[in-house]
Structures are given as structure tokens and as C-alpha cells.
Design a protein around this nucleic acid. Structure first.
Lengths: 208, 208
DNA sequence: GTCTATATTTCGATAGAC
DNA sequence: GTCTATCGAAATATAGAC
């Protein structure tokens, strides 16, 4: 039997799928990457689920890596305006503004759970993207900017640590919300997450 | 179907004790997996850095997956006694005991940074291990047990959410400690992390 | 326990027809 | 834009000598 190119698509549905757009590829890829991991997902599988052949994907994306890159850029776009707003603040106002930004971040995670999940579960794959030309050319990586924030000694260390804590707390507590806490409304979970991370910044504590 | 014939290794001879080579493989593998990611690291590279050939590795580990599995089991052993102690508590005492357990967890993360880093950056690879026979036979996965804890409706949701938050906060804030906050002593960072996660459980807040 | 050599598989990527 | 067909390059894994 032929090794690849199992069309099965023409015959499968009542009508042939419309043109394979980049967005459909990205949707299916995101789905599969989250199910199996980026590295364990082959282009053959993506194509199969889309009902096209592997070669068709190469019309839209020159390399497999470019698919992941495109998903990464979506994530990047989300974080960019938050970080831009941070950059416009001086260190004194930054800590005070942080809880508000966390609320926005929580909203973003909620609205883009799959994207954030992808990042959380395929970190090393994302880090490999750093070598990518387009990645370097078009964007400064979000985590580099966040890293500089954490390294900024003008901000008290206690606050920087709590900034890092809050991001980790949010992603960790909200990511697999589906059933993670049993049959509980998502809004309830979110409310408690907001409370928790706000507590990290309102306690009376020594700065240093 | 074990590999068979581990010749006279544990006979307390002056020769190489059993397991030394396995440990060296695991050390190098952990190193490379963290540098490049599990999937992007080939057995050829591991063998090369060890100064042996690829085939030699197969004497010690039947499959590449088994190397990752062994590292996973080390991680599992660390978390097991913490979870065992949790299981011996009833829900009422559990929340009160949590901050103390967090301190121990922080110590474990500190003493095994590379292992925790591996897990954080290769999550999807670890999840693939679930299919592994030995993994299923010998161990109940740590994250499954933690998952049941979070789903335990006998504990107030607010507390369960904060449990999840605290774990994420610790791993997120402490993992890349090397230079993450500039040239700051690790002990200082750890102190602030302890303060932060303790705050998550001492604030006066409504339970629900 | 380690080696050489090779089998086997699968994947990413390309060429060219339609 | 999608297909058929195939290439070339890895990688995992095995066989068997020493």
C-alpha cells in the first residue's frame, strides 16, 4: 500500500472541503499539538485531519516550524500591549498597576486557553523558534521583555518575585480548567484566582 | 522480557558497581534534554557526550522513552511522600498543613532544579509516558493524585484554587533562578517565594 | 559492556502535473 | 491550491562480534 497520500477526502464528505486556508491549518495544528505535542505531531496527521495531503500544507507554510511560529505570534500579539503599557510606566507606578494588568491577563488566558496551553506544554519547542529568522526579525520575544522586567533592580526584589509568582499562579490554576476542580463553574474558579493573585500584592509586607 | 544478563555487577567487587553507567547516562540525558528539549535530543548526541556509541545506550535502556521515564520516576519519588502525608490528613487539617508542605516542596525544587526544569519544559513528552507499560504498572502518576486533590469538593474551592496557584507560583518563580532576577542570591529569592505563597494561605478571606 | 554495521521507519521537504 | 510520487536525511532500534 502506498505510504502516504491517502486522500479519502473527496469521497469522505458530501462535498469536498473548501480551500484549505491558513487559519484552518492553524486551528487543526493547534488542536493536534495540544493532543500529542508539537514534536510528536506529523504534517501527515495535520493534513489527514484537514482532509488534504501533506504537500498541500507546504503551499501555505514552507516549514513545519512556521506553523508553530504563527501560533507563537498570536500569543505574542496578546502579550504585547500589556507589556507596552508596562514600559510606559516608571518603576514606582509599575507595582501599583500590576494587579490591574493581571486581571487583563486572566481575561486573555480565558479567551485563548488553547494557545496558552500549547505554550505551557511545548515550552522547549517554542524555545527552538528563537533561531527562526522571521521570529528574530519581526518580534522581540515576550519572555525576553518579561525577563528584563524581572531583572530590573530598580523594582524591589520582593515585588519582582511576586510578579513571577502571579503569572505562574494564573497559568497553573486556570489552564486545564475543564474539570480540573470537578464540576465547578469557570467563573467561580476565575474569581478565586483573581482574589489569590491580588492577595500577593496587597499584603502588608516588607519591601526589599 | 528484561534485557537479561547483568553480569556479576552487584557482587561487591572492586569493579564498577551496578548502576554507575545508568546514572551517568541519566545525568547526561537530563543535561541535554534541558538544553535542547527531549524530542530534539538524539541518542547519538547523548552517546557522543558520554564518549560511547549509540548502541551502548541500548544495553542500559531498551528505548529512548525509558530514559525519560527513569527521570520521571525520580521526580515521582520526590513528590510521593509529600502526597502520602497529604492523604493521611482529613480535609479539615489539610489546608492548615499546606503551607508547611509548600516549604518542603520548595526545598525539593531547590535541590532538584534540573529535574523540575525538565518537567516544566517537556510537559507533552512526559504526558506521552502515560502509555508506557512500566509507568502504568509501577506508579500512580503524581499529577493524577494532585488532580484528585483539586477535584475534592470537600475542600473549599477557594483553597483548592490557591493550592494550584501556589504550586505554579513556586515553579514559575524559582525555576530559572540562574540570573532570572539579575545577580541576586538564591536564598533571597527563595525567602520571597516562601513569603508570597504563605500569603496565599494566611489572608483573611471568605471560604467558598 | 561496548563496539561495528545495518535494518527499519518515519519524517520533513521538493518536483512537477493538473 | 491541491494532487501524486519520491527524495534524502535523520532517527530509533537490532544483530552479532569482541
Amino acid at each position: 500500500m502506498p505510504r502516504e497520500s491517502t486522500p479519502a477526502a473527496q469521497a469522505a464528505g458530501p462535498r469536498r472541503p473548501r480551500g484549505v486556508t491558513q487559519d484552518r491549518i492553524l486551528d487543526v495544528a493547534l488542536e493536534l499539538f495540544n493532543e500529542q505535542g508539537y514534536d510528536k505531531t506529523s504534517l501527515r496527521e495535520i493534513a489527514q485531519r484537514l482532509g488534504v495531503t501533506k504537500a498541500a500544507l507546504y503551499y501555505h507554510f514552507a516549514r513545519k516550524e512556521d506553523i508553530l511560529l504563527e501560533l507563537h505570534l498570536k500569543l505574542h500579539a496578546l502579550g504585547r500591549d500589556l507589556l507596552d503599557r508596562l514600559d510606559s510606566l516608571d518603576e514606582g507606578q509599575l507595582v501599583a498597576a500590576w494587579p490591574g494588568l493581571l486581571d487583563e491577563f486572566i481575561d486573555q488566558v480565558l479567551a485563548n486557553r488553547e494557545l496558552f496551553l500549547l505554550h505551557q506544554r511545548n515550552r522547549s519547542a517554542f524555545e527552538q523558534l528563537a533561531d527562526n529568522e522571521r521570529h528574530q526579525a519581526e518580534n522581540e520575544d515576550i519572555e525576553q521583555r518579561f525577563g528584563r522586567l524581572l531583572a530590573n533592580s530598580a523594582i524591589p526584589l520582593a515585588d519582582r518575585v511576586r510578579m513571577a509568582c502571579s503569572i505562574g499562579a494564573i497559568t497553573s490554576a486556570m489552564m486545564g480548567v475543564a474539570g480540573m476542580y470537578g464540576e465547578v463553574p469557570v467563573e467561580d474558579v476565575v474569581k478565586h484566582v483573581r482574589d489569590a493573585v491580588h492577595d500577593l500584592f496587597r499584603a502588608s509586607r516588607p519591601t526589599g
